[in-house]
Computed example of a mutant assay.
Amino acid sequence: MGRINRTNAATAVGEGTLTEALARRDVLRLRHAVLTAAADAAAGRDQGVSRCGSCGRS
Rank of each mutant, 00 (worst) to 15 (best):
M1G: 13
M1V: 06
M1S: 12
M1A: 11
G2K: 15
G2R: 15
G2I: 13
G2L: 15
G2F: 14
R3L: 14
R3C: 14
R3E: 15
I4N: 13
I4K: 14
N5L: 13
N5M: 13
N5R: 14
R6F: 08
R6Q: 12
R6H: 12
T7D: 13
T7A: 15
N8F: 11
N8K: 03
A12T: 05
A12N: 02
A12Q: 07
A12R: 09
V13M: 09
V13Y: 10
G14N: 05
E15L: 07
E15I: 05
E15Q: 07
G16W: 01
G16C: 01
G16K: 01
T17I: 01
T17P: 01
T17D: 00
L18N: 02
L18V: 02
L18K: 02
L18M: 09
A21D: 01
A21I: 00
L22Q: 05
R24P: 00
R24S: 04
R25G: 04
V27N: 06
V27D: 06
L28D: 02
R29P: 01
R29N: 05
R29Q: 07
L30F: 04
L30P: 00
R31Q: 05
R31P: 00
R31N: 04
H32D: 06
H32N: 06
A33D: 04
A33N: 03
A33M: 07
V34P: 00
L35Y: 05
T36V: 08
T36S: 06
T36D: 07
A37Q: 09
A38H: 04
D40N: 12
D40P: 02
A41M: 09
A41I: 05
A41K: 09
A41N: 09
A41P: 01
A41Q: 08
A42S: 13
A42Q: 13
A42Y: 12
A43R: 14
A43Q: 12
G44A: 07
G44H: 06
R45M: 10
R45C: 07
D46H: 10
D46E: 12
D46Q: 13
D46F: 09
G48V: 00
G48Q: 02
G48C: 00
G48P: 01
G48W: 00
V49P: 05
V49N: 12
V49A: 14
V49R: 15
S50I: 11
S50K: 07
S50W: 04
R51Q: 14
R51E: 10
R51A: 11
C52P: 06
C52I: 11
G53P: 12
G53Y: 14
S54K: 14
S54Q: 15
C55P: 06
C55R: 06
G56T: 10
G56N: 11
G56I: 08
R57N: 10
R57H: 10
R57Q: 15
S58C: 09
S58V: 10
